[in-house]
Nucleic acid binder design. Sequence first.
DNA 1: GCAATAGTGTCTCTGAGACACTATGAG
DNA 2: CTCATAGTGTCTCAGAGACACTATTGC
Lengths: 276, 276
Amino acid sequence: MENNRDHSETETETESEVEVEVEIENESNYTSSKYHTPDGAPSDIVIFTITSRERGTGKKALPERELQVLLIERKRWPFEGQWALPGGFCGEEESMYDCARRELMEETGVADVHLEYFNVYSEPKRDPRGWIISHAFFALVHERYLAERKAQDDAADVRLFPVSEALRMDLAFDHRRILSDALERIREKMLTTTIAKEFLPAEFTIGELYQVIRTVVPDFEEQNFIRKITSTRSRQGILEEAADENGAPKLSNRYSQRSAQLYRFTDYAPKLSIYG
Amino acid sequence: MENNRDHSETETETESEVEVEVEIENESNYTSSKYHTPDGAPSDIVIFTITSRERGTGKKALPERELQVLLIERKRWPFEGQWALPGGFCGEEESMYDCARRELMEETGVADVHLEYFNVYSEPKRDPRGWIISHAFFALVHERYLAERKAQDDAADVRLFPVSEALRMDLAFDHRRILSDALERIREKMLTTTIAKEFLPAEFTIGELYQVIRTVVPDFEEQNFIRKITSTRSRQGILEEAADENGAPKLSNRYSQRSAQLYRFTDYAPKLSIYG
DNA sequence: GCAATAGTGTCTCTGAGACACTATGAG
DNA sequence: CTCATAGTGTCTCAGAGACACTATTGC
């Protein structure tokens, strides 16, 4: 829901051959169609979600969480029968971001989720149908949004896969590369921004937050996570304690016998720096 | 010189109207050209450099530095006579990154500089010539590379402008927006990565480094900059002291009477986190 | 009382931050 | 001796990190 502003154009009259071909003197006789143009500009969307499953034990415990990605089985040439990222061609009347949002709505039925552009994929010959430049987005969707969808369209041609599994599959086009790039990007953002909130309810316990971070970034280990996150002054107000209307702290004992304090993210976005 | 991998494709056979139109059953009768396709996919490049000018005083002193951007005056419709970012149309046989690199070479004569993709601009009607989707890069070029170019092609239609001035100009297309986005991006990267090295010689003093950072990010103020950067352990090895072949520390007295220790960037890339 | 999560007490060590101070050496 | 930059001494205070400990409560 950011990083996506679209506009612009270019070419100058200097020495580029490609551009000189295209530029014509004035509006009346201008036509770009006599030159070679792309055959399509689609968007592809890496839709991430985190599923949680109750542990089998009778005891209260944090659920098992797993990072998943939504894939679609292709029915047509090219890459017929292979799994691919959802996406679709952009129309002239919409921006790339609008296109991605529309596709996301069509694939998952959800709007208003975190949707962010991250790269363009334009290697020659990467699509057997022609010159097609793909624009990759990632979306972060809470599993509760996908639950309905999965029930309603059980057509076996759209499914969630664990990311680790999807990365081992032979996906259509260069979708494995796109998925891999997207994963790298959300790992970085998970630690440097508050996108963890996309996978959490509005109010959550420190244990849940820690678990979500570790689901995306397994390397992340902080032995004293509670201390750091709650010790005021330093992590200045990324989180605030949830309280009811009387000001009493809100607690949850969903995952433990002992109730845990609930927190919510504030709007504060810390500025990071390697220099101090 | 990173963040740029290109490939991919998309569209599924589900409910998107646009895509369904385009997808045909098999290779033999497949043709995308009967549907509406973009009229061009150019790249635009925001070429930043930092100029430095000796201060007028007789004393040794750090130079005055200023962040500049290279602009080109358009000679043709549309936006004839207005200043624009350099760029040009991509060909089918090259990736967007290759296209940007080629344009950069043509405009500035330099290769092997930091060139990084950062956004797509695709708002409908943003180009009067048609449906044109622009891919924006930024380049960080040391001023020594641009010196020759400026001398050789003094055609008055390609010039460096201080960024603050360029942002007040009425640039062609949505190039002001692109410039503004690029500036925001390099400000962030200046503080979270070691791209400052793109504007510095291989060996530099702490004073120079500080000055370069402040030229890009004026808000950056660290009173004890030397302390932080040299106090081992925390800023773990972003920098290392330059030494000659005998192991003696290398010093510079270019900007001061008292010689200053020279440093170089290491390859170490610190991982930042808001959580600890 | 066990299990599983939540949270605290206490200690050490490092660094951040402030501010005044010294160092260098050409003009 | 002045000026502009380079760099140090010294103090305080906060937090990182380690690790053992207590807290809660359904089963």
